[in-house]
Design a protein around this nucleic acid. Structure first.
Lengths: 152, 152
DNA sequence: TAGGACCTTGGAGTGCGCTCCAAGCAAGCG
DNA sequence: CGCTTGCTTGGAGCGCACTCCAAGGTCCTA
């Protein structure tokens, strides 16, 4: 029952990602994808040129027709982008997916390394938050001191 | 007792930041600052050119001599950089500091806004972490499925 | 006093991630 | 039919944050 699911590991690991998209016959023009993802059409075409996207279907006149799995992929790319992962690394991951099932181990390792990066970045930000909070407290105190000085 | 401290709010809000630096007569060449901060000398000079640094003292022959307060400032800049704050925004903050005490309110607001940004970014990263974890679980399961398939 | 490490400057160059442009094709509408 | 809107392409351009270069001055040690 789940052996075929290995083929779609990088587009639907788990339930279908939640985002709205009227299932039935799923096909989206580039401008629809722009509306759904917030990316620009330029960026979508650029992602394709650099090998970050899987093959995108075309209409009989050559226009792009995105599918739900492409949107799922873009959602993942968006998440990875938030982590600061370089586009080149995402392209590497995309290449592994295209290369087939024998790259599972490498993809798995890449995901786990990325997870560690994200944890480290969260820790960094919490350190920064602490500094910021100290400074904010200081400013609040200084503000009160100035106020009481003025009223003296 | 604390009224003079308002003058140093942006270099030593709280205890002296912990980082090692042999107090006494504090003076550092640019290469010492490179060693202490991990920034390049190019970057340090560039920060100065764009107005991100306060005035840096010079030796009688014109070489930079950094002081502890400059290192504290660089530590703050480093933290803010981690949050993804654009350099231009940090320059703005530096200008407020140079402008004097009457910019307290604006600096305070800027710090609080930055704090909110950091919180939002942490939340984003935690969302990404959740996606990553789902994917990692999926890959782990798929790996086990493939293994048991091979052994069948 | 010589040599080498280190410092100075303005300006040019780099890498990344888009962002835009020009020229042209295709579909829908009055 | 013309008009508008939307899509196509390769390639050029942009903003950011550095990064480096060339040409020269300074510091230290012997």
């Amino acid at each position: 029952m789940e052996t075929t699911a290995t083929r779609t590991a990088d587009t639907c690991a788990g339930p279908p990602q939640g985002d709205r998209r009227p299932d039935g016959q799923d096909m989206y023009t580039i401008s629809e994808v722009v509306a759904l993802t917030g990316l620009s059409a330029h960026t979508l075409r650029w992602y394709e040129r650099i090998g970050l996207m899987p093959h995108i279907d075309r209409s009989h006149t050559g226009q792009r027709r995105y599918r739900n799995r492409d949107l799922d992929w873009l959602a993942l790319v968006g998440k990875l982008r938030l982590t600061g992962m370089p586009v080149a690394d995402m392209v590497r991951y995309a290449e592994l997916v295209r290369a087939g099932d024998h790259t599972y181990a490498e993809r798995f390792a890449l995901l786990k390394a990325t997870r560690e990066d994200v944890l480290a970045r969260i820790a960094e930000l919490q350190g920064t938050l602490a500094v910021l909070d100290r400074k904010i407290d200081f400013y609040a105190d200084a503000g009160r001191a100035l106020a009481s000085e003025r009223s003296r």
